[in-house]
Design a protein around this nucleic acid. Structure first.
Lengths: 337, 337
DNA sequence: TAGCTTCACCGAACCGGTTCGACGAACGGG
DNA sequence: CCCGTTCGTCGAACCGGTTCGGTGAAGCTA
């Protein structure tokens, strides 16, 4: 059942059917009704492939995962959900680009074969060849996060530097002097992930500013790693009284490690960081943290991308978000020296 | 840069280029090399839309979310990840069908406009019109979960009845006599979600069999709901010594509620259920539970769907999984009456 | 050297839409 | 009554691939 079939049954030409359905040219009320009736009867829907071929737009956006990331975190989940939802509101579908080792091939599939009109790049790295790649292929994109040189490009990001610093100041204000930093996994740091780098930067600088004694750690994206990481921290410096983490997935393990070491949160030990509120509220005591507004970021990314698709020559825009720290129950006064 | 451009530069016809690239007809080694060279030079990749139009297949599968589900859980995340990965291995892309209120429209987009070759339906309900809908549209699909009458259809599911029963037997064996059941949210139960229904069935029957005193509850998909749910349970019957849950997202809240009521897990109170191991290991003490093999289910679903796409007349297949209970640290002997 | 295959390639049709230019009928103005 | 618009519709071309049938040249046999 194609447009020709509809045309035949309605006794008009194919072009008339097209115009009647799209409304791009006037069609008499009489024929429009006749066509609509046939369409309804047969449950006809124009083929997306044919339409995409004809007008050069697929009405699909690609969601591209990181090359090194074979692991989805809770934050990414919220993000995906909001992207899909926001895209639907603009009549776009969302195509996922496979992560994993063979990512280059899938990148080519999505973008080289023009399956998508535009793309959203997740988990950006400071030096991210994907951004240039997209520009070369002339495919509009919006990055989640900033590269080292974000000028002139489209992105929505979190100000990890400021957020990590805010955590440090929060702890320092409470009187903590010896603080540890629990980062994302080492391979991600080495790969140049911006959240890991800028977060580390912000932490280090703010700590120096406040004259704190600090140690920094990388930690795998799972509970077991969090547990061993805490053990390591307390082994390296038993006088540590607080930690800041960017690592959502390790959070439960961090808590467990502290409990195991006999440290009560928040009485003996304070925990804070940058974590989606969904997760911050899951642990007990609930985590005082800068809430990652994953859902909002997804929505904004789609908005920006749609604007870019509609106005190819629009000047670059971006959103840098700095959510406040939500005071919950995982931080308390540090022991005075 | 289309196939005509390649043909011109290589000095051959468009069909020859097509055959050279697809290998569906022999092409002399000489011309094949010449064509390949031009292709490499220009970085040509055939348009997915045109190809889809020509051969009637989009090389894309749809992942359809539940109409009533506005919330993604951890299990669903693992699932999505494995589906995307498995699909990539078979050279398929994955298109997400927006969830939310307006799901019917997106369902039409994906399936009516034939954006996908096949679909995977998540969070199936016992009476799920989507299954029939798909059959009507003649689109091959695989369901995650069984409808009330799964005969003759393709699916991969979890034996929730048996799993919930196993949890009951585990607790009964430990000596628990008064046990609560924490189900998915009420609206999902009412909507007929199979996991909620079969899990409840299995729990109820096994409890009757073992002569236990039970109460069943529905609980929202978040920590706060879990917390209030536990409060309600202990209010309704303070002698309750254990609970079984299907509700991953509430898990953290359940633990918090118990701690708040002064019940120590597992000394005073046992917790078990059906939960992705990722989550079971996040809480402290780690949850003794039947681990939902979300990743495996995703992989199997894709396998089944691909088989169905390749062999349209293949007889229906399915996988019913019954993972064993992983003994961790959240259950212990019940108080003897 | 005629006759038959085989090989390598070409041209045209097709997939199912969109869009542009044209054309006939109705209509209004002078 | 003739001419210029306007309105509604049609035919054809096009998007960028795939695929079928055919054709000329080369190779082999008799």
């Amino acid at each position: 059942m194609n447009i020709g079939e509809i045309a035949k049954r309605a006794g008009v030409s194919r072009s008339t059917v097209s115009y009647a359905l799209s409304g791009k040219r006037p069609v008499s009320e009489d024929t429009r009704r006749r066509i609509q009736q046939v369409v309804d009867e047969l449950g006809y829907r124009p083929s997306a492939s044919a339409r995409a071929l004809a007008n050069g737009r697929t009405s699909t956006i690609g969601l591209v995962f990181p090359p090194a990331g074979n692991h989805y975190t809770g934050m990414q989940l919220d993000f995906i959900g909001s992207v899909v939802e926001a895209a639907a509101a603009y009549d776009y579908d969302v195509l996922l680009s496979p992560s994993g080792v063979d990512s280059d091939r899938s990148f080519q599939r999505l973008l080289g074969e023009r399956r998508v009109d535009g793309a959203i790049l997740m988990e950006i790295r400071l030096a991210d060849d994907r951004v240039d790649h997209l520009a070369t292929l002339d495919i509009p994109s919006v990055a989640i996060g900033r590269t080292a040189r974000p000028e002139g490009s489209w992105w929505v990001g979190l100000d990890h530097t400021t957020l990590a610093a805010a955590c440090v100041h929060h702890l320092a204000d409470l009187g903590h002097r010896r603080v540890a930093f629990v980062n994302r996994p080492e391979q991600l740091l080495r790969a140049g992930y911006e959240s890991a780098h800028r977060g580390l930067d912000g932490f280090t600088k703010a700590a120096a500013e406040r004259g704190l004694t600090v140690r920094t750690y990388c930690c795998g994206d799972d509970a077991a790693s969090g547990q061993t990481c805490v053990a390591q921290i307390l082994h390296d410096d038993p006088a540590t009284t607080a930690l800041v983490t960017l690592n959502e997935a390790a959070l439960g393990g961090l808590y467990r490690g502290l409990a195991q070491a006999g440290r009560h949160v928040p009485r003996d030990f304070s925990v804070t960081g940058v974590v989606a509120n969904h997760w911050a509220e899951t642990v007990t005591p609930q985590l005082t943290a800068a809430d990652v507004p994953a859902a909002e970021m997804g929505r904004l990314a789609v908005e920006l991308l749609v604007e870019r698709l509609d106005h190819p020559d629009a000047p670059p825009r971006h959103h840098l978000l700095t959510p406040p720290i939500s005071l919950r129950a995982s931080t308390g006064p540090g022991t005075t020296p």
